[in-house]
Amino acid sequence: MRAGELLGRTAYDLHGRRLGRVVDVVVRGDLPDGRLRLTDVFVNGHWWSRAVRRLVGGERPRGPWAIRVVARTVRHHDRQLPVDQVQLLPPVPGFPFGPPRG
């Protein structure tokens, strides 16, 4: 599974309530064989914050102080959620823990 398959998908909680869109993922390399494991997703529920994020330059915006303030405000709307508490639509094969081993 690639991060690009997850980004932009609509995320729902386990009860079917809409949480927002996936804007980032967290992976950790703590598996014994050295593979990475998806642990969390960042979800943002506001359409305007995704648009502003693109305009001001993402994580580390540069420029006038007003742009930096807007970017910092937008980041506060992101929520980090464990992958086992999120459902994605349209579904991604193997989410959240990869394909079953057989």
Rank of each mutant, 00 (worst) to 15 (best):
V74E: 12
H76I: 00
G29I: 01
R50V: 09
G57C: 09
D24I: 01
E59T: 14
V56G: 04
V25Q: 02
V69R: 15
V26P: 00
R37Q: 13
V25T: 15
V26N: 07
G57V: 07
G57M: 08
V52E: 03
R54Q: 08
V52N: 03
V26L: 13
R60H: 15
R75T: 08
V23I: 11
P61T: 10
F42Q: 01
G34W: 04
V23D: 01
V74Y: 01
G29D: 06
V69G: 01
V69Q: 13
D33G: 03
D30K: 02
R62I: 07
R35T: 12
R68E: 13
D24R: 12
H46I: 04
R60Q: 14
A66W: 14
H46F: 13
G29C: 05
A66K: 05
D33F: 04
H76D: 00
S49Q: 11
T73W: 15
D40G: 02
V41W: 02
D33Y: 04
L38P: 07
G57H: 05
G34F: 03
V27C: 03
V41G: 03
V52Y: 10
V43Y: 02
W47E: 13
W65I: 06
D40W: 06
G34S: 01
A51T: 04
V26I: 08
T39E: 13
L55R: 11
G57N: 07
P64G: 10
P61A: 10
L36A: 07
G29A: 10
F42E: 01
T39W: 08
W47S: 13
V27G: 01
N44R: 11
L31Q: 09
V69T: 13
P61E: 11
H77L: 15
P32V: 04
V25M: 05
I67D: 05
G29M: 08
V56M: 01
A66E: 11
N44P: 00
V43W: 00
S49W: 05
V43S: 02
W65T: 06
L36R: 10
S49I: 08
G45F: 04
G63A: 12
V70Y: 00
